[in-house]
Design a protein around this nucleic acid. Structure first.
Lengths: 250, 250
DNA sequence: CGTCAGCTTGAGGGACGTCAAGATGTGTGG
DNA sequence: CCACACATCTTGACGTCCCTCAAGCTGACG
């Protein structure tokens, strides 16, 4: 089912909104979403799509690739707060918050669709239920950051790493990028370090521990989970915070 | 101005919505907010108002006191993600997310006003702009969690502590609880530890360092900032993430 | 004036950071 | 198909921040 929708010409963000809305979209709503004027552009890896301090007049949907939301300290230390996959609309908050408090960067080559705020506002005026659905996506994003916060604040590097892998495999699975719990892992180790709040060296040692425990293998950008239950246990992973309709749908 | 509004009979959450909305409320909107049927109840310190896993049919506004949002690991470790003051509506997310991913507890005696979801939904249907304002509050809450995440992930205990004090003094100031940058600090040290992702013992040592640096004093539940610029510098504190209309309004 | 919650401090340990060197892998040009 | 360059990974040695355990101390309150 997940796989199919990728070949029906549906915009990935429409699929995402459908999966997140607590109601079935009408034909009109679906048509209006597809009719949104969208300027598509391609980004190289490690490019900022938007930057902290920006005052954007548009937001964007990620159509292909993996991106991340991050913030930096004045000293240049970087903390990644979320990863994004096809269908996500990571900066929808800019609709209501003038100044961005975050930056969003690509991890690998990404296709991005920009939509003017005015067009979104007009859409939401015409179809208020879509506003509820979008509000809901921002609430889910917030719930994911809170789980990450619990992670960095109160779990050690081993559990944090396991947790991140659990989330990635689950979320990649939803969009068809992780059949049988293995997936491409475009993030390099220093990037994982920024997501976990540790150093690249310690990422390396922690991955080794996860390998030695027989939970995963990770080679040439490919993550394979050998012991899903074991990995979940090490991470204390409970997918409830992702608010998926079917958490085990992989 | 801030002080005055406390004596005009306005519900604190109406003041908050007014300060956060990007437009001026009409008389009708204000009246509808005040007319919301609200069940007021009083909570002792250290009580949960709502708990992770709940499926509430109502949300609440904090009318008096200080509360906190937190999550726990299976091992019982606790991470506080946000503090709340009078006017905040910390679980408004429950309007769109059936199952709560967080718990919210009181820090000191709190007065709380519960409102049924149905009443809120009716209100938002009648006054869609209020929905935008509430959406905006949830986005600001999310921005605050992200700043905390940067804190715990990428700053040491000293800067984290300073940052927390900066945020508290600023936010307490907005609601009239911190004239001249000093305020009651009802959180005890183990609680601060849960907010910072460190241990109570280390909280103690870190506070001592802040005192020795001449930045603050903290005695018998009272925080006094002696060197605001110094404290901000130690914390790299930039109030932009709070999205206040006037960040220096104290 | 005793009791108890909360604060303070010391000593020792462990998780993670830092620095630095080498190994492995991957892409490119010849 | 090889040679080379460069990115990324890997490992070791050592340092530090923060944790743990445990003992006093202080202050509020009955």
């Amino acid at each position: 089912m997940t796989g199919l929708s990728q070949h029906t010409g549906k915009h990935p963000f429409v699929r995402k909104i459908e999966s997140i809305a607590l109601f079935a979209l009408t034909e009109d709503e679906r048509a209006a979403l597809h009719a949104l004027p969208m300027q598509v552009s391609q980004f190289e890896p490690y490019q900022d799509i938007v930057r902290e301090g920006d005052r954007p007049a548009r937001c964007f949907a990620l159509l292909e690739g993996i991106a991340c939301t991050y913030k930096t300290t004045q000293g240049g230390k970087r903390q990644v707060m979320a990863y994004h996959v096809a269908g996500d609309i990571p900066d929808i908050q800019s609709l209501h918050l003038k100044v961005l408090d975050i930056s969003i960067a690509t991890i690998n080559p990404c296709k991005v669709g920009f939509v003017q705020h005015d067009a979104v506002r007009a859409l939401l005026r015409a179809f208020p239920r879509l506003g509820d659905a979008l509000w809901r996506t921002t609430l889910i994003d917030a719930a994911m950051v809170r789980e990450w916060m619990l992670n960095t604040g109160r779990r050690d590097a081993y559990a944090r790493m396991a947790h991140l892998f659990c989330e990635l495999v689950t979320r990649f699975g939803v969009v068809g990028l992780a059949p049988d719990r293995s997936c491409e892992m475009p993030m390099i180790q220093p990037e994982l370090a920024d997501a976990l709040g540790i150093t690249p060296v310690h990422v390396n040692r922690t991955i080794r521990e996860l390998k030695e425990a027989g939970l995963i293998t990770l080679r040439s950008r490919r993550l394979i989970v050998h012991d899903w239950e074991g990995l979940k246990a090490a991470a204390e992973f409970d997918p409830a915070y992702l608010h998926l309709t079917d958490p085990d749908e992989i």
